[in-house]
């Protein structure tokens, strides 16, 4: 294998990956992985911006590199994208165009197992519960209250306010409640609101779950 399809370079702003123009992508990926792994604990716990330059790669390939970086380096990747062609000296060139498009891959990954916040009692109008993990409310969420979690939201009561699960973009996050009568439901960047018709009173025996399917939020009983 030809060495040096990829070179890593540290800058005050973060990490730059230089990809050789005539390299093939599979090689780039495996070599990058090797380099990251050989750095051992070096990246672990660090928080950095990552840019790449050199060979043009497509979105899909960018995503592959990014997820590999997140997985193997143990670092918190604040942004990832192609380095701007013109580098303005002295300006913050980390604000790349790639940043926004890659936000979706940088979301919280702890919905299977991760930090969890427990709230006992009714969450009332005007209160905002924010969490960097999952949230469990033992009580109701009243109109005017807002719950914002990077992970799942479980409410052991009635939801009448606004709940936002997967707030940094994780579409796999779910919202579960004994009764879902929210003003708005949000999962990742998808927002739905209650229908305008007065709600039909029905006796739902089991809890309800909202999740994302084909880009829409679906509410279903828990089977």
């Amino acid at each position: 294998m030809e060495l040096n399809s990829v070179t890593l370079k540290g800058t005050p702003n973060g990490l730059v990956i230089i990809i050789r123009e005539d390299s093939n992508f599979a090689e780039v990926l495996s070599e990058l992985e090797e380099k990251i792994l050989s750095a051992g604990q070096f990246f672990r716990g660090a928080s950095m911006n990552v840019l790449y330059r050199g060979k043009f790669i497509n979105k899909n390939q960018e995503n592959q590199i990014l997820s590999m970086l997140i997985e193997k380096s143990g670092a918190q990747i604040k942004s990832f994208g192609r380095e701007p062609e013109k580098m303005d000296v002295g300006t913050d060139n980390m604000k790349t165009t790639g940043y926004k498009t890659h936000m979706n891959s940088l979301f919280f990954k702890g919905i299977e197992e991760g930090p969890c916040k427990f709230i006992r009692g009714t969450v009332r109008s005007g209160s905002l519960i924010k969490s960097d993990g999952n949230v469990v409310i033992i009580g109701d969420v009243n109109p005017g209250a807002e719950i914002k979690a990077l992970g799942n939201i479980i409410v052991m009561g009635v939801v009448r306010g606004i709940v936002h699960a997967g707030a940094d973009g994780n579409k796999a996050a779910v919202i579960v409640a004994m009764k879902l009568k929210p003003v708005q439901l949000r999962i990742a960047d998808i927002i739905t609101r209650a229908p305008d018709e007065p709600d039909i009173e029905y006796e739902e025996k089991s809890a309800e779950m909202a999740y994302v399917k084909d880009g829409y939020i679906i509410i279903d009983k828990i089977h």
């Binding site: 009332r124 109008s125 005007g126 209160s127 109109p143 005017g144």
Partner: peptide, 11 residues
């Protein structure tokens, strides 16, 4: 709605 807010603030 306002009563709910007030109860929260009282608590």
């Amino acid at each position: 709605r306002d009563a709910d807010r007030i109860i929260g603030l009282l608590e």
